[in-house]
Design a protein around this nucleic acid. Structure first.
Lengths: 159, 159
DNA sequence: TTGACAGGTTCCAAAAGGGAACTTACTCAT
DNA sequence: ATGAGTAAGTTCCCTTTTGGAACCTGTCAA
């Protein structure tokens, strides 16, 4: 057969598709929730574990992987015994738009029973913000109507 | 103990946090890749299965869940034998900014070995677009420097 | 009647995840 | 000095999910 080799999950990172590469880092069940907590200012193991309800084993694994991916930085805050906090790196902070997109989508299309737990607020004005994805060059709104996702190299598969 | 009950993954949807609710739908290993393929115009079971390399069993499960979540619509394109295509609903198309955010992040922070497989192109101008998250009200750029993620109701946990 | 196509389902083995207890290395109150 | 508390993991065992491959069903074309 002529199609590209099937992707194994742990090989996604080597893929050419940027979506696959991003998901190889943050596409896991718990990972974006860990990142969310870091943006909220929770940085310690026990704190995050208690908030998420994830098992300690899995959390330790996810924190290791996020550190290896350059999203989190492990920072010692105490010497004896050595204790660590997890801080977002620049790459981690760059995930903010992704988090905002998820929040925006959920508020619109996966509504909660009660009031949301999180609000996005402008630091400058104190007002709630209304996130919109635009083209930096001309300010045009980006939707799947205005922008095409184009494959650079056509797949060997039939369309 | 005073902290909120641990989240079980299949109960995330009932959570107040919009991030958790969004991830209960698209936070799975394969789900956003299925959505990506739908944006790329791949709509059929075998086609998506061959492209992703996911097992048929898991793909059938994910398509069912995406349909149940209102992200995809199952559309019959042939009577005998009955055959179906999966189309994005409005809620599914609303995931476009999330997909774009993931692409943008990966291009910057999880670079590929070779050229990316996907490019975002303006339908109007044919040029590549440069996605930027802004506030619809005043056009200000949204980053974690300009916007705060604020918990509406403080957690019972210590800060 | 044999093969191809399309969209699944079924089966088994392997991997990942959940739950709880245990470990290590301190500090502080009794 | 003894015991409880804190913080960050690790270890163990059992259940759930996933991967891989084969099988099933309905139809058409050779």
């Amino acid at each position: 057969m002529a199609y590209t080799a099937p992707m194994k999950w742990d090989q996604l990172r080597a893929e050419n598709c940027p979506v696959a590469r991003a998901l190889s880092v943050v596409g896991d069940r718990w990972t974006m929730l860990v990142v969310r907590d870091c943006f909220l200012g929770f940085r310690r193991f026990d704190e995050i574990q208690a908030r998420l309800g994830v098992t300690r084993h899995v959390l330790a694994d996810r924190l290791r992987k996020l550190e290896a991916a350059g999203v989190l930085r492990r920072q010692q805050y105490q010497d004896r015994p050595p204790r660590f906090e997890y801080h977002l790196t620049d790459a981690g902070e760059a995930l903010f738009p992704t988090l905002v997109s998820l929040i925006t989508w959920a508020e619109e299309h996966a509504p909660p029973d009660e009031m949301s737990e999180i609000t996005l607020t402008s630091r400058a004005t104190g007002q709630a913000v209304d996130p919109l994805l635009t083209d930096a060059r001309d300010g045009e709104v980006i939707t799947n109507r205005t922008v095409t996702v184009r494959r650079n190299r056509p797949s060997a598969l039939p369309d």
